[in-house]
């Protein structure tokens, strides 16, 4: 049962990832097309291109990026770059770019390792020019058979404790007889004499 659930959740992540990438690409194309129609000269002017990209970042950060943010899990850079709540592990910043435009700072961010019950999930997000450029799964449960095998063996779990001497207020004792003590003592004596 857990096998099916985890596989569909992995699939969901992949679909989400694909959707997000397509959305960013689509927005970019739409914006370029829009710019061409509203400002036909810019395309012909080489110097206008950088400025249009800056404008793109400013605009898209408000619209295009904010909606995927809502769909992202809690470990997106948006929530981890400012000081995160104490109980939430901080994301690691592997590299940081100079650009400060948009909601996100450029760089590669690694989310905390999250115990997803069926295994550990770790996600890495790459931000370029203030936008999510790539999302990678550094870790995700691959060996579904492990948990299945543990469950199927079903060895009863038995309690353990360190052996400790108790007060001897008893009627009867189960265990060794005096014969054994004699055996051990004689063996011990034999071994000692064997040394000499």
């Amino acid at each position: 049962m857990s096998k099916n659930q985890s596989q569909s959740s992995n699939l969901g992540q992949i679909v989400k990832k694909f959707f997000l990438s397509s959305f960013v690409v689509f927005t970019f194309i739409a914006y370029v097309v829009h710019q061409r129609f509203t400002n036909p000269d810019s395309a012909l002017n080489p110097t206008a291109t950088p400025s249009s990209i800056v404008a793109l970042q400013g605009d898209s950060s408000a619209g295009a990026i904010s909606s995927p943010t809502a769909q992202q899990p809690s470990d997106t850079p948006a929530s981890t770059i400012p000081p995160a709540p104490a109980q939430q592990p901080k994301a690691r910043i592997q590299s940081s770019g100079a650009s400060n435009q948009g909601v996100y700072k450029d760089g590669t961010y690694t989310g905390p390792q999250v115990d997803a019950y069926y295994g550990i999930v770790e996600v890495q997000v790459n931000i370029q020019q203030g936008k999510i450029a790539n999302v990678q799964f550094l870790q995700y449960p691959q060996d579904r058979r492990t948990s299945a095998r543990i469950n199927s063996v079903a060895v009863p779990y038995l309690q353990q404790e360190a052996v400790q001497a108790q007060s001897a207020n008893v009627n009867i004792i189960s265990g060794a007889t005096l014969t054994s003590e004699g055996f051990i003592m004689s063996l011990d004596a034999a071994l000692k004499s064997a040394k000499n």
Binding site: A168, N171, S180
Partner: peptide
């Protein structure tokens, strides 16, 4: 009920557990 001690195999003059039971068998 009868008090049955379990002998400590590491020190046979000690017991490591005290059981309280009756109408049963205890073997070590």
């Amino acid at each position: 009920p009868w008090r049955v001690g379990i002998r400590n195999p590491f020190n046979t003059s000690e017991i490591v557990k005290v059981l309280s039971l009756t109408d049963h068998g205890v073997a070590t």
